[in-house]
Simulated scan of single mutants.
Amino acid sequence: MDLGLQGKVALVTGGSKGIGLETALVLAAEGAHVAICARDPEGLEKAAARILEQTGASALPIQTDVTSADDCLRAVREAAEHFGRLDIVINNAGTSAARPFDQVADEAWGYDLDLKLYGAIRISRAALPYLRQAGGGAIVNLTTSAAKTPPASSLPTSVSRAAGLALTKAMSRDLAADGIRVNAVGIGMIRSDQIEKQWQLKAPHLSWDEYAQDPKHQIPLGRIGETAEAAKVIAFLASPAASYVTGTSVNIDGGKGPAL
């Protein structure tokens, strides 16, 4: 299926590894120009080299801390000026932070919201003039399916991600007249550095496939997902193929989360 991404320009935060990098790879393979943002310059260079090797596309690495408003403005400007336009924003920056309520200090609350919620706000706000200039575009905010029905010991991530869902819906209403679609994805258990560390810590005697398919995960599809499976859904929502989809959240969790 042709997603209609040829010649489009995308900016991906948290783009040096994991779902962000995999999304950049899918977008580049579909013909989009990609700028990847992250804090680690070495990781960015390795990611850009991988994108070039696997797709033949030259990605633009931009060292960025999304907790800095100045960094966000600079990153968006560099991407738009380098490629001549901006059509897509993937707000992927963030890490998992999950503890019981009484173990989360004010500093942890503040940092989590600054990184995941305000980071998406800053990047999207900086990108807005360029998206309007391009005649429309797409923003995809990464959240978690747990944001819809938070389990115990899921703070502060479940709260900051739930705020991201509200942000997505409100933005979709405000920006629809500009032809800018805003959607979210709710990530469940997807293979990542963090998941692999849990595997090595909790069940080093199991192979990856055995661990991924362990019934204790309670995933209806019977396994932990791969990053490429998440990236393909994100790329679809960012593409013209999803031209009539906005203001929604799609779970990528093997059926484990609620369909709210």
Rank of each mutant, 00 (worst) to 15 (best):
residue 150 P to A: 12
residue 233 V to L: 15
residue 82 H to V: 07
residue 130 Y to P: 08
residue 210 E to Q: 15
residue 170 A to E: 13
residue 89 V to P: 11
residue 26 V to A: 00
residue 147 A to S: 08
residue 203 A to D: 03
residue 174 D to S: 09
residue 20 G to M: 06
residue 39 R to E: 09
residue 8 K to E: 04
residue 134 A to R: 05
residue 214 D to V: 04
residue 223 R to S: 12
residue 130 Y to E: 08
residue 162 A to Q: 11
residue 184 A to P: 12
residue 163 A to C: 15
residue 36 I to C: 00
residue 29 A to Q: 01
residue 242 A to P: 00
residue 204 P to C: 13
residue 241 A to G: 00
residue 232 K to V: 03
residue 193 D to K: 15
residue 61 P to V: 06
residue 177 A to F: 06
residue 67 T to W: 07
residue 59 A to G: 05
residue 36 I to A: 06
residue 123 I to E: 03
residue 201 L to D: 11
residue 258 P to D: 15
residue 71 D to G: 05
residue 134 A to D: 00
residue 78 E to C: 12
residue 153 S to Y: 13
residue 48 A to V: 05
residue 213 Q to M: 14
residue 51 I to G: 00
residue 231 A to C: 01
residue 140 V to S: 06
residue 50 R to M: 11
residue 54 Q to N: 01
residue 172 S to H: 07
residue 4 G to L: 10
residue 230 A to D: 04
residue 216 K to Y: 15
residue 164 G to S: 07
residue 157 T to L: 15
residue 129 P to H: 14
residue 84 G to Q: 12
residue 141 N to D: 01
residue 66 V to C: 08
residue 40 D to P: 00
residue 113 L to N: 08
residue 68 S to L: 07
residue 15 G to S: 02
residue 14 G to H: 01
residue 139 I to S: 03
residue 246 T to I: 07
residue 256 K to M: 14
residue 86 L to S: 03
residue 189 M to H: 10
residue 64 T to D: 13
residue 13 T to A: 01
residue 242 A to I: 02
residue 132 R to H: 11
residue 227 T to M: 14
residue 162 A to V: 10
residue 216 K to I: 14
residue 229 E to S: 07
residue 118 Y to C: 11
residue 122 R to F: 06
residue 167 L to K: 10
residue 243 S to V: 01
residue 39 R to T: 09
residue 162 A to K: 09
residue 157 T to R: 13
residue 100 P to E: 10
residue 155 L to W: 12
residue 107 E to V: 12
residue 106 D to R: 14
residue 82 H to W: 13
residue 57 A to G: 00
residue 244 Y to S: 05
residue 145 S to L: 13
residue 17 K to P: 01
residue 218 Q to I: 02
residue 133 Q to M: 08
residue 121 I to H: 14
residue 115 L to M: 12
residue 114 D to G: 09
residue 110 G to V: 06
residue 180 I to L: 06
residue 147 A to I: 02
residue 90 I to D: 02
residue 195 I to Y: 09
residue 92 N to W: 03
residue 145 S to Q: 15
residue 213 Q to P: 04
residue 19 I to K: 06
residue 210 E to W: 09
residue 23 T to H: 04
residue 164 G to M: 15
residue 253 D to H: 04
residue 63 Q to N: 03
residue 234 I to V: 14
residue 46 K to L: 11
residue 106 D to W: 12
residue 151 P to A: 13
